[in-house]
Write a protein that binds this DNA or RNA. Structure first.
Length: 891
RNA sequence: GGACGAAUAGCGCAGCUGGUUCAGAGCAUCUGCCUUACAAGCAGAGGGUCGGGGGUUCGAAUCCCUCUUCGUCCACCA
């Protein structure tokens, strides 16, 4: 049975490749799925700890219900390139995929869906709601992971994790309890950022400031002491006056000095409030009078604390006015703003209104303006964690690419505030705090442990008496453990996996989550593993459209990656992304880049068709041109691969790709293959054929991290491969030493060939030409046989003087001439040579000037001076040759 | 308001500790070619006072100062 299956495979393979060779066009969709299956079936991406060096990458977990967008494509492509490269190098590559429960975003989506079904969240119990949330997660969850396979991502799918799965959840609770025991987590009433739409507190990082075209309202506050007089207060938020409990002036402000010790009446509300003095008030802003609303502004809150003011919370959680406001109860805060403007004007209490632009803090998720609100929340003290996380980055133990983000990182850590970690949500890790009937609480990972602790406080407490805190933890409180929790390092410290895979090698992510995630992972890494979570952080840029705009759903300028993959192939899309994606720079994405990628796939495909299409004859010997070309190609590949490795080390992946692109397209296809191509209809000799296959093999390997599908497909077809063999673990090794002279000589040979081609184009010559050379012997013409073949040269002859009926050009340091048999226009030829001469004389003059400058000769490094002398000699030689030719033509 | 980064060919970019990697590749453009792997291709060519102005130096795209423009992050004066 097994044999039968194998036979089927072989037949299938044969049929496949024979079809393929006939097809002149590369069709990615025919082969990509097949090879991904192949990799999965052979467990190529699966990793287990072994004796090899570990190379670990953890995926920045996308939202569990998200779908692939262009930002992911960039990010995951980079990770896959790094992982595949490491795997080829023989490292034990392990790329762990997974998804994030995205507490607030997912809960919002579930709430929306329920609303569309006429169900309100508030009508459901927590358990019922979570049932819906899990159903939603299962329905949409993991779509994005499937999409990553289309892109070719070589994740170890056996390890797929979820931030809310059992192990990750247990890790979160354990860490929470531990930090509580350490005194780093506390509960308290603080001013927090409140999202009136999501109905939850947010961390400072989740608040984004947006410029808002608003108004500045000037309100009249009559004085109690003299009802005829009033003070004017400028505010952007007139709807908060019901919460005013003081007016504040600067004690050094002469124009408001008359208000000192007085009281004023809040407009419409008619409540008396004192005038207080504080230097916090900016004399220059507005009228210099500030209304103080301690419940609804962070600065006012501080003033309130300092001056022992009353605090009136006039808002409900959803942003409508509460009973405490007394007026406009139940109306939305923005409706009140409009209404109160009218009412104030009617009452004669509105002095004026000015247009005003200010920054409004908005919820990152829901987009609505946040409301500063006093509330009871859980906080994590950051001082200690910031301290342990700062140094490793500043000392480059953890390397940031690009380095400029070190500054951003330092600034944030040095000004860090405590992290509000509780969220008034149900979808997430529920805070493991349990309240006793008397209001005291215990913190423990399980109800059982909590009960024990509770009974230590009060022996009569039963499990039924305990009430668990209803809040959830911030999503990032689980993500920050990701590099550890994926290997279960929290639950079972020191286990085999965490010891082997941690610290991870590279983290690839966007700079927008440097605080949310990167910094916090570093904190958790040192706190729980005593080591960095990763050695290198590669910050990608933002993917923008070609006009430089951020890609967004509302603009409709974001292409669907899967559609792009359908049209250009995964390799084409990956290429397109990487061609212009240096670390840290935004990339302006344009579909034409994918086109370029697809065209490159086509180029590789056709080169393969050429080489594999040759009839091979063992009895034929390699020609000189072929031997010379092979010698050069070997040196060129070596040279490029050395450089590519260097670029990989510097995470300059787009430059590495560009080099390989040029190596394959220009050097290998345009120069090498043309040089070794047998005459039409003639067979290729075995030596050249085998060597070319070998080069092809290396080129495919080196391109594989960037273009995994086509390289696997062609590598499989290049030679007979055994079932289970894969390019995925084949290193692109360079076996030669660098041969600078060979490379330099070939560049001269290219110049000669290009020179001849130019003459052909200008004179419209199709036949073979005769070439003469001065200055060097015929045998010293670099890569002479290649020059003859690619230049279409009948014969090269050494001459002392250029023939009259010839047109010449310079290559290297000597002059070459194509004999033209009377086709030459002497005047034109002389003019051309004179132009060249003029340029060279100018060049020589500048070199001479330099060398004539004593201070240059004295101060410059000797090798620089030597170089100038060489330039001088070369130029003089060329000038002499040109002059001789001109003189001869002018006879 | 503060900090950081950027400005080089039509476009998006590279150019490291000043001097042969020094003014560069790629795409686009233009001119020839349906040449037998590839027209999604081949062979050529033309594009730039390196944002402006100063300075240091024998020598500056590169170092310093300054101005202009753009970007990012942080702060949030109500």
């Amino acid at each position: 049975m097994q044999n039968f299956c194998e036979l089927c495979m072989i037949i299938q393979k044969l049929r496949f490749f024979s079809n393929m060779e006939l097809s002149s066009k590369y069709n990615p969709s025919e082969i990509e799925g097949k090879w991904y299956e192949y990799w999965l079936n052979h467990g190529i991406f699966h990793s287990e700890p072994d004796g090899r060096e570990a190379y670990t990458v953890v995926i920045p977990p996308p939202n569990v219900t998200g779908v692939l967008h262009m930002g992911h494509v960039l990010n995951e492509t980079i990770q896959d390139i790094l992982v595949r490269h490491a795997r080829q190098q023989g490292k034990n590559a392990c790329w762990v995929p997974g998804t994030d429960h995205a507490s607030i975003a997912t809960e919002a989506k579930v709430v929306n869906r329920l609303a569309s079904q006429g169900i309100k969240k508030t009508d459901l119990t927590r358990e019922e709601f979570l049932k819906h949330a899990w159903a939603w997660t299962e329905e949409h969850g993991g779509i994005i992971l499937k999409q990553l396979r289309r892109l070719g991502c070589s994740c170890d799918w056996d390890r797929t994790a979820f931030t809310m799965d059992e192990k990750r959840s247990a890790s979160v609770l354990k860490v929470f309890c531990d930090l509580y025991e350490k005194g780093l987590i506390y509960r308290g009433v603080r001013m927090v950022n409140w999202d009136p739409k999501a109905l939850t507190a947010l961390s400072d990082e989740e608040v984004i400031f947006k410029e808002h075209q608003g108004k500045l309202y000037y309100l009249r506050y009559r004085t109690v002491e003299d009802p005829e007089k009033y003070a004017v207060v400028a505010t952007t938020r007139p709807e908060t006056i019901m919460g005013d409990t003081a007016m504040c002036i600067n004690p050094n402000d002469p124009k408001n000095a008359w208000l000192k010790g007085k009281h004023v009446i809040v407009p419409l509300v008619n409540r008396q409030i004192p005038v207080i003095e504080d230097e916090y008030v900016d004399v220059e802003f507005g009228t210099g009078c500030l209304k103080v609303t301690p419940a609804h502004d962070i600065n006012d809150y501080m003033l309130g604390e300092k001056h022992h003011l009353q605090s009136i919370d006039i808002f409900n959680d959803n942003g409508t006015l509460s009973e405490a406001a007394g007026l406009y109860v139940g109306m939305d805060r923005f409706d009140v703003r409009e209404q109160i403007e009218k009412d104030l004007a009617e009452a004669g209490l509105l002095e004026k209104v000015e247009a005003y632009t200010n920054n409004v803090g908005c919820s990152e998720r829901t987009g609505v303006p946040i409301e500063p609100k006093l509330s009871m929340q859980w906080f994590l003290k950051m001082e200690h964690l910031a301290q342990i996380a700062l140094e490793p980055v500043m000392k480059d133990e953890i390397m940031f690419y690009p380095q400029k983000y070190k500054n951003t990182y330092r600034h944030w850590l040095e000004n860090i505030k405590d992290w509000c970690i509780s969220r008034q949500l149900w979808w997430g890790h529920r805070i493991p705090a349990y309240y006793l009937p008397d209001g005291r609480f215990v913190v423990a990972p399980t109800v059982e442990d909590a009960l024990k602790k509770a009974q230590a406080i009060n022996p009569s407490v039963t499990a039924a008496d305990l009430r668990q805190d209803p809040d959830c933890l911030d999503t990032w409180f689980s993500s920050w453990l990701w590099p550890i929790s994926l290997f279960d390092g929290i639950n079972t410290p020191g286990n085999k996996e965490i010891s082997y895979y941690y610290p991870t090698a590279d983290l690839v992510t966007g700079p927008d989550i440097i605080f949310f995630w990167v910094a916090r992972m570093i904190m958790a890494g040192y706190e729980y593993e005593g080591k960095m979570p990763f050695k290198h952080v590669y910050f990608t840029g933002i993917v923008r459209d070609k006009l430089g705009r951020k890609m967004s759903k509302s603009l409709g300028n974001s292409p669907d990656p899967l559609d792009l993959i359908d049209r250009y192939g995964a390799d084409g899309v990956r290429m397109g992304m990487m061609l212009s994606a240096p670390a840290g720079n935004d990339i302006l994405f344009d579909e034409s880049l994918c086109e370029q990628g697809r065209n490159f796939s086509g180029k590789i495909w056709n080169a393969f068709r050429l080489v594999k299409g040759w009839q091979v004859d063992d009895s034929v010997k390699a020609t000189d041109a072929q031997r010379q070309a092979m010698k050069w190609m070997s040196a060129k590949i070596t040279d490029t691969l050395v450089e590519v490795e260097d670029l990989f080390g510097k995470y300059r992946l787009s430059e590495a790709l560009t080099l390989l692109y040029k190596l394959f397209w220009d050097e290998f296809s345009s120069w090498y293959l043309e040089a070794i191509k047998p005459e039409y209809g003639k067979p290729q000799n075995a030596e050249t054929y085998r060597t070319t296959l070998h080069y092809f093999d290396i080129l495919l390997r080196s391109l594989h991290p960037f273009m995994p599908f086509i390289t696997e497909h062609l590598w499989q077809a290049l030679e007979d491969r055994k079932e289970g063999e894969t390019i995925c673990n084949q290193e692109a090794k360079c076996e030669n030493q660098e041969q600078k002279a060979v490379l330099d000589d070939f560049e001269i040979a290219k110049q000669i060939i290009t020179g001849i081609r130019n003459v052909r184009a200008q004179k419209n010559i199709g036949n073979k030409v005769d070439l003469t050379v001065q200055a060097v012997n015929v045998s010293d013409v670099p890569f002479r046989a290649v020059v003859e073949k690619l230049g279409g040269v009948k014969e090269i002859e050494h001459v002392a003087e250029k023939a009259a009926s010839a047109t010449s050009f310079l290559a290297g340091n000597s002059e070459y001439a194509v004999l033209l048999d009377g086709l030459v226009d002497t005047a034109e030829e002389v003019a051309k040579l004179k132009k060249e001469l003029e340029y060279l004389e100018g060049f020589l003059a500048s070199v001479n000037k330099k060398l004539g400058n004593e201070r240059f000769v004295q101060n410059a490094k000797p090798e620089i001076v030597a170089n100038e002398r060489k330039k001088q000699a070369d130029a003089e030689q060329k000038i002499a040759a040109l002059k001789a030719s001109i003189e001869q033509l002018s006879k």
